[in-house]
Nucleic acid binder design. Structure first.
Lengths: 193, 193, 193, 193
DNA sequence: AGGTAAACGAGACGGTACGTCGTGTCTTGGT
DNA sequence: ACCAAGACACGACGTACCGTCTCGTTTACCT
């Protein structure tokens, strides 16, 4: 049985929404806990009751809700790589993430608990999709053996992450995922040969 | 002509060394300017006389000294890709960078001046190497046309960066650069076909 | 007619007892409402249903129960002054009051409602005793006129209060009230001459 | 030699003045450290560099500066008692003290360090004056022996403190000190008989 | 030799965010 | 209507770090 007054329903969402708004408007540094609480019409204690730190809060606001729909089977490894890249890109793009991701990743690295959760929730889910994609390709005979999923993960996630958050360049004509799909398909094939 | 007392010679190095030591020992957040100055046996003013901000200081301490020796011509694109990956990896690896890079990148993003310098100094130099590598491959007839250097840059830098600073995994057997070289060679070839 | 569940009987006393215990053990500042409620095995709401504020609660716990038995007529002003001083001292002494009184008086000053009640309940009752004492002395011919009761009140209450709650000194040999009685009798006589 | 930047001269006074102003305008509870710092045009750190807590700050602002000029020898005990009472009253009266004293005394009681300092600085100085007053009276033959100074201290300080900070009454016609002088002279004489 | 200007270590400065805590109110489900 | 539990808004607390400024002192160059 649950004792005491239950958590108010709307607060979780109101706070997360406030975080996203402040990230977009003012960036990570100015996205203060006080400001978030004020914007959400909520006391600071209500925030700290739910999340242990600013990093955890932002993590919950911008990472968790990313619902990566499992990329469907397109019938070919070439098609699957393209779809996976789209999913990865969509999970790293967005006005709020654009501002927040580098700082957030930094704070995640500084907090072992959060780092573990990030590994499980975000990386783990994505890794799972890749494993299934690779197994299908092996079953189809497109790959003779399943390459190391971690290596494939780095190959697909790395270029997207780098382009979006390290380079200050316009997206390539045709779109980032579409431009990266052919070379990365070749890379995966080379790994599984 | 220079008036007044000249800068003391050893301070630059002493401070940079203190930064690297503190990064390794305590991480980026705890590597405060006060701590750095105290460790270097130096006043805070001497630090700020040389670098405008903490980000600039850490940048100078861990990025600038990376002397990327221009990867030499190995005679084949396959060999060149491997060498370039070694250079990239060596520029991103190291005890201090391990701790600092995510936070440093975050601070760089927050400071337009620094972001521009980072683009020129670090990314630009690396990009130059890639352009030369690609031109040689075209000259050799290994590529029929030179692919977009930015895309190649993302393809080669991204996976290394991701593995070193996002994943918490052991390096693959045989080494990271060696493991990534074959698939990424294939990727570059596919781009330049 | 009374609707609903009647107040549980023991709560008033349990809370007051918890207040006194916490005052003695931890002092006024650490005597939190949460702590009081927890100690009494009671919800905070039950406390606030009975007293409007912490000050009111402590007031009720340590002031109200002081049952000043009206000092009896000893037959002489000299004797009456001694008895009144004993009553005053007993109303200001005690382990819990020792800790609480200065903070409590401060909070009482900050709350006009409470200040008024303190004036009526505590000061007023004491003042009444003094008036009767003075009237008896006039009737006996010990005083030729009745002095200002407020002044007498200050003369008798002040030194006791000061000794007990401002000084950090041992009680004088023979007891505080006994030591103060002769000079204060002389003072009252001087006032009523 | 003094190393480093010296404390800025005006800050001590500016902060103390801000405290007094805020006490008068808003009372002790609303006299926040933040508000004090803002009012004085000073950072919070500058305040905490000088005083360990709010209590210490207010103590320094309203108690320390009270320069009790040593009451002069009036030639008679009767006159001396009157003068001492004037000094005591003037040290406890004032717009800021009116608001602050009860809360301040409460905080002083809660901090042993501060309590010791209060005993030495404030009470000790006053006690010294009383000892000299009593010795003069003995020398003059007005008292046959010197009474316990602590008792005399309680007799003179208590009624003034009580009237000013416990009662909510108008000052007696003729003034508080003047009204208390005759009875308290009689009390002291009775003690020293 | 003396003057001048900029460097030096030390540390105080204003500002800002943090995470904690206490108060008094409100909201559950259960008695 | 009351209860215990505990979430709520508000707001003060004391700490920490940043980047700047101000001391008294030292070290070069230039008269």
């Amino acid at each position: 049985m649950v004792r005491g007054r239950p958590r108010e329903e709307g607060i979780d969402d109101a706070v997360r929404e406030a975080v996203r708004a402040l990230l977009t408007e003012t960036g990570y540094q100015r996205c203060t806990i006080d400001a978030v609480a004020a914007r959400a019409g909520v006391g600071k204690a209500a925030v700290y009751r739910r999340w242990r730190s600013k990093a955890e809060l932002v993590f919950a606001a911008v990472i968790h809700p990313v619902e990566l729909e499992p990329p469907s089977d397109t019938g070919s490894l070439r098609g699957d790589v393209g779809t996976v890249l789209e999913v990865i890109q969509s999970s790293l793009d967005g006005t709020d993430l654009r501002q927040a991701l580098p700082s957030l990743l930094a704070d995640i690295r500084a907090d072992p608990v959060l780092e573990a959760r990030f590994g499980e929730v975000f990386l783990g889910r994505e890794r799972g999709y890749l494993v299934r994609m690779l197994d299908r390709a092996v079953a189809r005979g497109e790959l003779s053996r399943r390459p190391d999923p971690a290596l494939v993960h780095a190959l697909l996630l790395g270029p997207v992450l780098t382009w979006l958050h390290l380079f200050s360049e316009m997206p390539p004509s045709g779109g980032l995922a579409a431009s990266l799909a052919p070379p990365l398909h070749a890379a995966v094939v080379a790994l599984g040969a």
